[in-house]
């Protein structure tokens, strides 16, 4: 009698814990959204930072043209999100252009070409890159590599997108590498054996047999890397120059969505329009990464079913 009582309590606790995972996700959305809602409901917030200002910019009189400027502490506060969105995308692009080829190529090497001894050494070293906190990468980008990049490209601006994008790429590489490598090693050895038996070289096997078979996993790695790059805060906060410039030029500084929140949240008065806009940016970031992950999971599931003919 006593045993089944405690058994049921424990089972309840376990079920509750699992439910907490779902609950947290919902709570995150609710509590961040709650602080952003006044942008739609309060007249004062709407006048200063309504949706039209966020996405269409402020009207700069007297010529009436709209300007896309982010300068919230000002006589006329300006909250256009476009400089921030473009900045975020620009840096993510640079980071991914640098990180994807390197990480995936490295994954192919360790899973297809490297002798087992070498694999045991290289894999931990690359995974050790994941153990470098992003604040350290940001520090490195600010103090060490910024000068190198400026000299290399003869750039005007020391804190620019190339520099921050490089550090961002370093943060993304271990994630993409680990997931891609797992996907590649999961491909059955029989695939490779069959291909070699037919006379293919290891590279041809990798390219035409293993890679396509592992593609769903590699695609998932890509999505994870993209999500990480979009949301990364510390590296960008320290090494981007934080300039809200609406430009695709990678030689310029930039200001990302997450760094804006990190830099400005400490200052805002609780309940001011600025406060609500920052939480709105949080909602945007959360919604974007959530939808990205969701779409990724669905797509990867579909790819897997198509390529292997089995249920995922």
């Amino acid at each position: 009698m006593n045993r089944s009582w405690s058994e049921r309590i424990i089972e309840g606790v376990i079920r509750l814990s699992a439910g907490l995972a779902i609950a947290s996700l919902i709570l995150i959305f609710i509590f961040i959204g709650k602080e952003a809602v006044p942008l739609f409901t309060s007249a004062e917030a709407r006048a200063e930072a309504g949706m039209s200002k966020l996405f269409l910019g402020n009207r700069e009189s007297p010529d009436g043209k709209r300007v896309q400027v982010w300068q919230p502490v000002s006589e006329v506060p300006k909250y256009s999100l476009w400089p921030l969105i473009v900045g975020t995308l620009k840096a993510t692009l640079v980071a991914l252009l640098f990180a994807f080829p390197l990480a995936i190529a490295a994954a192919i090497f360790t899973s297809e070409f490297a002798p087992p001894g070498l694999r045991e050494v290289v894999k931990p070293v690359i995974e050790l890159l994941a153990g470098i906190p992003s604040v350290v990468l940001g520090f490195f980008a600010l103090i060490v590599t910024a000068t190198y990049f400026q000299d290399l490209f003869h750039l005007d601006y020391r804190l620019n997108t190339w520099n921050a994008g490089f550090a961002l790429g370093l943060a993304v590489i271990p994630i993409v590498y680990t997931v891609a490598e797992d996907a590649l090693t999961a491909v059955p050895q029989s695939f490779r054996a069959g291909s070699i038996a037919l006379g293919a070289t290891p590279w041809q096997t990798a390219r035409r047999v293993v890679f396509p078979a592992a593609f769903p996993g590699i695609f998932a790695a890509g999505i994870l890397g993209f999500g990480r790059a979009i949301g990364e805060t510390m590296i960008v906060l320290m090494a981007s120059g934080n300039a809200a410039i609406l430009s695709w030029n990678p030689g310029y500084s930039f200001r990302s969505l997450s760094a804006t929140v990190a830099a400005e949240l400490g200052e805002v008065v609780n309940g001011s329009p600025h406060y609500h806009v920052l939480f709105f940016i949080g909602v945007l970031l959360f919604a974007f990464t959530f939808l990205l992950n969701l779409a990724g999971q669905l797509w990867v599931g579909r790819l897997r079913r198509k390529l292997t003919g089995a249920r995922s």
């Binding site: 996700l25 709570l27 961040i32 949301g231 805060t233 990190a262 949080g282 990464t289």
Partner: peptide
């Protein structure tokens, strides 16, 4: 899986807001 993908700063906002 989605929790794993949420940006760190969003957690900071949640910590503050909740």
């Amino acid at each position: 899986q989605n929790l794993a993908g949420v940006p760190a700063i969003v957690f900071g906002l949640f910590g503050l807001g909740f």
